[in-house]
Design a protein around this nucleic acid. Structure first.
Length: 929
RNA sequence: AGGCGCGUAGCUCAGUUGGUUAGAGCGCACGACUGAUAAUCGUGAGGUCGGCAGUUCAAAUCUGCCCGUGCCUACCA
């Protein structure tokens, strides 16, 4: 080798640069499906069950999504969070067995099928119910398959081959069995309440099946004579009400006043020719509405007798306008906080069978019985004198005239207003009192059991407890029945004579047996005798044709999933859903379980917020701000979405949008590159001897202490489902501790020291542990990337990081003193980098290796730095303490003296006499041969 | 309209029992390196802590009102 060749020798191939097959760019959209395929081929779910066999179980019970469409961000958030929790529990050694599920029955699916019928010009009522139900079943099956694929694409690990769903025959049977429990207890009772009813279709409607359009109504001013009142002078006066639904008058049972409204008693002195009001009578109405009423009723002269406040009418009783014509019941005056003086008379007539508010005030609050007055075809019932057979929508003028004849009115009018109509027939609908099945909150102490169960449940965040508790405290009895087709029937027979439900366990058991084998379609297709057996005459019993509220279905999942599957347990460790489920699944599950098992089906409840757009607005099609999970997965990958979940405070609402996702991608790259650097550095490490902890340099011991602390934090936070903190800790560790500090300092050693140098081996030993720890810590979050990195590390494609656990960090790695010490060291280092930056700005230096650092330090800091190699710490070519007794830290930067080592690029005096490289490099290169 | 929440830098979040000039990371700007290179390192600029009023020696933190926003109810005779 000539002199010339020597000086230009390229030392690059003598430097141990990182090398790895783990690419810098993830290419997640393409890679993730491959990883999923690998998991399937490995049968990861089952393998994990085997690996965790006998371990303590952790059961996060899946709240079933509704099987009727593609996933949206809310689904993604929910399932990712569940998966992160399950995987982290698994990493902590538990058998976290996750069984996903679906909710299949219910109105939205029923509608879809109906809609298809309408398109074909078919009528739902002409189709046999079993055929209709089969189509609903097929529809739900289709969407379960679609959603299952979509969930798995998010990386969610669970028993996808054997999920639960509410329309499975066994599920349906057990739902029926649970209803049977309430039946046998006696807390299931038949009552009634007003529901939206279409007289044309003769069916109950849901709120969402109703559309509002213009309708012309006959209005009446009806008069109720006061028969009892604390203000005696008012007795005999008439309370006036105004209504747009004269047909509800036979069902009137009360009047509502506003306690703070000003009323006046007014004597009518003169009326117009056409008026039906009577001179000399005294009426009571709202003061500010008086003029308006008088003009509408043709009252031309009047005289105010008394002024009063609403509350003075408390306890008063009036008589019905038709009191002498068969309507001689008492009409109570009640305080209604919803009464306004915007229109009408300031009094509201209450027909408990014809409005939810009427029902609530009269029946629920005051126990007034709800009369049946309207047939299912919309005609008034036979037992109603004078009105029998009249139609509630067509005959209102007639009804008004009859009332006027009986001197029950002071005015008749007309109003065009917005009124509910049936979505299907576009015909007006009414509220109609309808027989319904209820579960009593009181009769068997359900409310008490539920409340005490809540007190024993852990809530994340704690606010959920208050919210649910106040709902349970205030809610009315559970209305279980729906007049619908697609659901689990209420498996009850009613004794036609007594009107009481049949309570016989053998009948219930028989029903359940049949449902288990054939599904609950049998209820609609089999004769009653099949269920009743020989002991009862089918002719004497009415089979209930209502189905159960779908919330009862999902409220029973603990019974047919948690209790029935041997690989699960009840109560679950955790239920986790969006905050809307306080009113939904958390609520219904609690009631169902409290009523039958006297405890909650869960030990903990976690609620997350809703997904909003980047400005914090709700997502809607009309705003055009909807973000689809499918699109994000396609563009960036599911790991990015998963990172978004844990980087957010999911107890509150979460925002998502272009910038937020960009930030996640940035964070992802940082973590990925940290893994990549470790993998590169560790290339070939397995051939070298690891170094025992005691023999490691202090810097490595500091890394060990950081790992120890992180391990503690991560386990603690994972146990309270606080992944946001975990994410922050991990990111800062990769970013601040490793990349910007430890790696940067150790590069020289890693690249330039002899391959088997003890210090270098010590660094690699610690880096190996860093990698193993880091990859297991991110595994629950970045499940794909962790898997990929682990595969690059082990080279064993029959293994997966997800079968493993968090690393066990040795106890003697804990060292809070070292953490404190190096925090101070880094503070001095920061002063140096600032000084270096200033020198750079002054064009004194470029790279830090060009610099020589002169430090003036107080004694304390000198002690701190003793034993630490300063050029290594600062990544400069030279550094020394020039004054060890200074009052404050002072840093001076000079150009390093000497020539640049061709191999390690440090500037050292020895280089010129050493063939262009430094002493250390010379030794290493010579030894290589 | 009612019940329960939320509102700290462009973004995501910390801010312990009220106590010095309100923190972090990202992004941004500027610079260095070119042996983590569609990487990496450094420095820096960004906040009347939703608004107003009050309690206090002292408020992002406690109280009241208001505004914005989300979930759940109720939207009617």
């Amino acid at each position: 080798m000539s002199e010339n060749q020597k000086t230009t020798r390229n030392y690059k191939d003598t430097v141990f640069l990182p090398s790895t097959t783990f690419p810098m760019r993830g290419g997640l959209p393409k890679k993730e499906p491959e990883i999923i395929a690998r998991w399937k081929q490995l049968d990861l779910y089952k393998k994990l069950r085997k690996a965790r066999k006998g371990r303590e179980k952790f059961i996060l019970h899946d709240g079933p999504p509704y099987a009727n469409g593609n996933l949206h961000m809310g689904h993604a958030l929910n399932k990712i969070l569940k998966d992160v929790i399950n995987r982290s529990q698994s990493m902590m050694g538990k058998d976290a067995n996750y069984v996903p599920g679906w909710d299949c029955h219910g109105l939205p699916i029923e509608w879809k099928i109906e809609e298809q019928y309408r398109k074909k010009g078919k009528d739902k009522d002409e189709v046999p119910i079993e055929e209709f139900r089969q189509e609903c079943r097929d529809f739900a099956t289709h969407w379960m398959d679609v959603q299952s694929e979509e969930f798995q694409r998010l990386g969610v690990l669970g028993d996808w081959e054997n999920p639960y769903y509410t329309m499975k025959f066994e599920s349906e049977a057990i739902i029926a069995e649970e209803i049977g429990k309430f039946l046998m207890q006696g807390s299931l009772y038949r009552g009634s309440k007003p529901v939206m009813w279409s007289p044309v279709e003769k069916t109950a409607l849901a709120e969402a099946e109703v559309e509002y359009s213009e309708h012309s109504s006959t209005t009446i001013f009806a008069k109720f004579k006061l028969v009892k009142c604390t203000i005696e002078s008012l007795i005999g006066n008439y309370i006036i009400i105004w209504t747009t639904t004269p047909w509800t008058m036979p069902g009137n049972r009360a009047l509502a006043y506003g306690k703070d409204i000003d009323y006046v008693a007014v004597t009518i002195n003169q009326v117009s020719e056409t008026s039906i009001a009577h001179e000399g009578q005294t009426i009571i109405v709202s003061e500010i509405l008086l003029e308006d009423i008088c003009s509408q009723c043709g009252i031309s002269e009047y005289e105010v007798k008394t002024k009063l406040k609403g509350y003075e009418l408390k306890g008063s009783i009036a008589s019905h306008p038709m009191v002498k014509a068969g309507y001689d019941h008492s009409v109570l005056l009640l305080d209604g906080d919803y009464v306004t003086t915007e229109q009408g008379t300031g009094f509201v007539h209450i027909a408990p069978g014809h409005g939810p508010e009427d029902y609530e005030l009269a029946h629920v609050k005051h126990g007034i019985e709800v009369p049946d007055t309207v047939n299912e075809n919309g005609t008034l019932m036979e037992h109603l004198p004078h009105f029998s057979g009249l139609h509630v929508l067509r005959d209102n003028l007639k009804i008004a005239e009859i009332m006027a004849e009986h001197d029950g009115l002071i005015g008749i009018g007309k109003l065009i207003h917005s009124y509910p109509h049936s979505w299907r027939s576009h015909a007006p609908v009414i509220y109609r009192n309808t027989a319904q099945w209820f579960i009593s909150m009181e009769s068997d102490g359900l409310r008490e059991y539920a409340l005490s169960a809540l007190a024993e449940t852990s809530f994340y965040p704690t606010a959920g407890q208050r919210r649910l508790t106040s709902m349970i405290e205030n809610r009315p009895d559970w209305c279980l029945s729906r007049q619908r087709a697609w659901g689990v029937p209420i498996p009850v027979f009613v004794d036609k004579k007594s009107g009481k439900p049949l309570q016989d366990q053998t009948v219930v058991d028989r029903i359940i047996d049949i449902f288990k084998k054939e599904g609950c379609d049998a209820w609609f297709t089999s004769p009653s005798s099949r269920f009743l057996g020989k002991d009862y005459d089918p002719g004497s019993y009415e089979k209930v044709n209502d189905i159960a509220d779908v919330w009862f279905d999902s409220g029973s999942t603990h019974a047919f999933v948690l209790e029935k599957r041997k690989d699960l347990h009840s109560p679950a460790d955790l239920y986790l859903e969006g905050s809307d489920q306080h009113r939904g699944w958390f609520h219904s599950s609690l009631l169902e379980s409290s009523g039958t098992r006297f405890r909650a089906p869960y030990k903990g409840v976690l609620t997350h917020g809703f997904v909003l757009d980047e400005q914090g607005r709700k997502m809607s099609k009309s705003l055009g701000n909807v973000v689809n999970p499918q699109k994000i997965i396609q563009q960036s990958g599911a790991d990015i979405l998963r990172l978004w979940v844990v980087s957010s405070d999911y107890y509150d609402d979460l925002r998502i949008g272009a910038e937020i996702l960009k930030r996640q991608t940035d964070h992802y790259r940082r973590i990925r590159n940290t893994l990549r650097y470790l993998l590169g550095a560790l290339d070939g490490f397995d051939k070298l001897q690891p170094v025992s902890f005691d023999e490691m340099p202090e810097l490595e011991k500091w890394v060990a202490a950081r790992l120890f602390d992180l391990d503690i934090t991560i386990r603690q936070k994972a146990n309270i489902y606080d992944f946001h903190t975990i994410f922050t800790e991990l990111h800062d560790f990769c970013n601040g501790d490793l990349s910007a500090f430890y790696f940067d300092i150790r590069k020289d050693m890693l690249y330039c020291d002899a391959l088997d140098d003890p210090s270098r081996r010590a660094a690699l030993t610690m880096m190996d542990m860093c990698f193993r720890s880091l990859v297991s810590w991110i595994a629950p979050i970045l499940c794909f990337t962790a898997d990929e990195a682990w595969l690059a590390y082990t080279g064993n494609n029959q293994d997966s990081i997800h079968l493993g656990e968090y690393q066990k960090i040795p106890l003697d790695w804990q060292n809070s003193d070292l953490i404190k010490k190096w925090s101070k060291v880094r503070s001095i280092r920061s002063d140096v980098t600032t000084a270096l930056e200033n020198a750079r700005t002054d064009l004194k230096i470029g790279g830090s290796l060009q610099a020589s650092v002169e430090l003036s330090l107080p004694e304390e800091e000198v002690m701190l730095l003793s034993g630490i190699d300063l050029p290594t710490l600062f990544i400069t070519s030279n550094a020394q303490i020039v004054n060890g007794n200074a009052s404050q830290i002072k840093v001076e930067i000079n150009l390093a003296v000497g020539d640049k080592c061709e191999r390690c690029w440090k500037i050292l005096p020895e280089v010129s006499t050493n063939d262009g490289i430094c002493r250390r490099c010379n030794e290493v290169v010579t030894a290589m041969v």
